[in-house]
Structure formats: C-alpha cells, structure tokens
Amino acid sequence: MNPKPLLFVILSAITFPSILGCNQPARVVTDDRDKIVSIDQIDVQDWSNAADQVLQQLFASGALETAPMKPARIEVTRVVNDTAQRIDTDLLTQKIKIALTQSGKVVFASSDTRANEVADYRDFKAGDDAPRLPFFVINGKILEIRSSAGSTKQSSFVFQLNLVNTVESIDAWSGEAEVTKQGTRNAKNSRG
C-alpha cells in the first residue's frame, strides 16, 4: 500500500477536529458560571448579583415594616446611571420590583398612562378624589470606578439605593452593593 494516502488520512484526522475545535457553535447559556465576564461592563449576572445584595440588606433592615398599611404603595423615581456604559437601569429596578412584590410587603404604582387614566376614571365615578400617593419612593445611583496596574484593569460598579419615607421625607433605608471585576481581558466564563 502506498503510504502517502494513509499519511494524508492520518493528518486529516488529526487536523480536521482541531480546526473544528477553534469554532464554537452558538448555544443557550443558562448557568451563570458559563456567562462572559467583561472587565469594564456590567454583565447580565452582575445585575442579579447587585439586586440580590441590596434586597438582602433591605429585608434585613425591617424598613418595609415601618409603613402603616401593608402592602405599602411604592414608586421607583430615578436610578441615575453614572457609569460610562449606556445601560438601562430597569435591569436593576425590575428585579427589585419583582422580589419586593413577591414578598407581599409593597405594591408598585404603575407607570402605565392608560392604567392611570382608567383608575382616575373609576375613582371619579366612585366619588373618590384622593390622590394615590406612594408611601415609599425608591431612588438610587450606579457609579463606576476604574483603576489599573500595568496591564491589569479593574472596574468597580457601585449600586446605591435609597428607600424614602414620603410622609416624613426621610431615607428609611439606604443600601449599597458592589461588583468589582479585574483582569487583562474579558473571560468566557467564571469557572476558573
């Protein structure tokens, strides 16, 4: 047997899979550990992490129990994005809304214009002219701090939230979460 075709087959068998191995077909990622970790951006898992941290602080504070009525009416006013990323802060506030609503301690005022019109009309028909005022208001700020040492870059994102008691106009609770990422380049996952 001529050895050349055999050699060709063996070489092809070795090189073909290794070429294939360089390409990664698209897949759905459900495990946080397989999600990309960017150094200078807030990744999808960071929002969940930050929301978890501040929610734990809020629940532990007992501030939600200070409302005279349960569930207390609450509104998110503004979460200022003070980072260098064009992001939607709803990625944080929506998670907080879901968790707080789930706890049964508060109800969120809707920002839907039509819903408000209908509610106003119903109140009018019922002869109720009292405005629907929130007992609590949530506001906050997301900050970014960058630093570097040699080729290692570090970004810290600080998530600050306040729960304001609107009757007394005082901060009933203030919480803060921090996510810090460091490295020379982005990583495909956080499995190490």
Binding site: V80, N81, D82, T83, A84, Q85, R86, I87, E144, R146, S148
Partner: peptide, 20 residues
C-alpha cells in the same frame, strides 16, 4: 441619562491619557 454616560466616558478618556 445618556449625556451623563458620555461625560463619564470623556472623564475616563482623560484619565486614560494621563495614566496610559
């Protein structure tokens, strides 16, 4: 909101210039 982001970027770009 986005204006604030761009101003942050400008500030970071200045820091980059100084540091790197």
């Amino acid at each position: 909101e986005t204006a604030r982001v761009e101003m942050r970027r400008a500030q970071f770009a200045q820091e980059d210039a100084e540091a790197r």
